[in-house]
């Protein structure tokens, strides 16, 4: 087991190195660089920036150096000092820029995740056990609607409802009076009162999908002979269903749980843009548009790290959950 984890860690480092390099290449692929954005913005304002000033900017940001030097300088900072570099557009360190928003992103994502799980699992299990009942049809109907309605649409509708019937300020995670205030109980309560709309919006599609997955997985297991054995043993119906088929049906869930980790940071960009939530998604979108390369690179690097870690956690969780996989690890 330890050997397995160690081997996976080595591969993780290699994978991340490759990803960071490829990311850098991709960021550099479009013509121009950050100065192009600066010039375009200046022209839009009717100003003209002299060539000398552009050259100065390029030197300042290190954009005049060869590509490989830029990459190595950046990655050296990341590895040796944990320094993700500077954001050109915000004129701040990437770490401080992201840090503020990552926390809120995680709060939103974890809250929606709990919302999804607590709703989807019971409904999915119910749907499978009472297949083709009225309740199952209702759950399927609502599920398909949930999957079909685009999130931004739902966001707009929910914002309208929140404003019209609950008198909430439109968008954002805080009321205006708390937006820049320091953290206190009032601000926390204000956050919670705003959070439910994005949670529902973000969670609906996931809930709908998970209901369908849980239902299908469980239906596959319900009529297997081992369930008949358990029933023949005289176990009460609910107990045997939870112990045997429901447990089996959750394996696919464990194998995908790792994918949630990167979603915690980056997910729900569109919803955040529509509802102007101060999470990290809109920041990433803006950075890509303005070729704010260290900001983009750092984002991608963080997301890939989380993906790789998430995949490994997922494997470990699956091994813990499913003895068939666990015993295979123990042998090799």
């Amino acid at each position: 087991m330890l050997r397995f984890v160690a081997r996976r860690l080595v591969w993780m480092v290699i994978t991340l190195a490759a990803i960071s390099f490829v990311t850098f290449v991709v960021i550099k692929l479009p013509p121009g660089d950050y100065t192009t954005t600066v010039i375009a913005n200046a022209e839009a304002r009717g100003q003209d920036i002299p060539d000398s000033q552009i050259a100065e900017l390029k030197r300042h940001y290190g954009l005049d150096k060869p590509f490989i030097v830029q990459y190595l300088t950046w990655i050296k900072g990341v590895v040796l000092h944990g320094d993700l570099g500077q954001s050109f557009a915000w004129n701040q360190s990437v770490a401080s820029l992201i840090g503020n928003r990552v926390l809120l992103s995680m709060v939103l994502s974890i809250a929606s995740l709990l919302f999804v799980w607590s709703i989807a699992f019971p409904i999915g299990i119910y749907s499978a056990l009472r297949q083709y009942s009225g309740g199952d049809y209702l759950a399927s109907f609502l599920g398909f609607i949930g999957m079909a309605v685009p999130e931004f649409m739902l966001a707009l509708v929910m914002m309208y409802i929140g404003f019209r019937y609950f008198g909430q300020s439109v968008g954002g995670l805080f009321s205006p009076e708390y937006a820049d205030a320091a953290w206190n109980l009032g601000k926390l309560l204000d956050l919670i009162s705003h959070l439910w709309i994005p949670i529902v919006v973000v969670g609906v599609a996931g809930t709908a999908g998970l209901i369908r997955i849980t239902r299908a997985n469980l239906l596959d297991e319900l009529h297997k002979p081992y369930v008949a054995t358990a029933r023949a043993k005289g176990l009460p119906e609910w107990k045997l269903l939870l112990k045997y088929p429901v447990r089996m049906s959750l394996s696919p869930f464990f194998s995908t749980v790792g994918w949630l980790l990167p979603g915690l940071i980056s997910g729900e960009t569109i919803v955040s843009v529509v509802m102007s939530l101060p999470t990290s998604g809109p920041l990433l979108l803006g950075a890509v548009k303005s070729q704010d390369m260290y900001l983009v690179g750092s984002f991608v690097l963080i997301l890939s790290t989380l993906t790789v870690i998430g995949t490994m956690l997922s494997d470990l969780a699956l091994a813990w959950w499913d003895p068939r996989i666990r015993t295979r690890f123990q042998k090799g």
Partner: peptide, 11 residues
């Protein structure tokens, strides 16, 4: 039952 493979829970 008929199938010893499937009539015991594998987990």
């Amino acid at each position: 039952f008929q199938e010893p493979m499937a009539s015991l829970s594998l987990v």
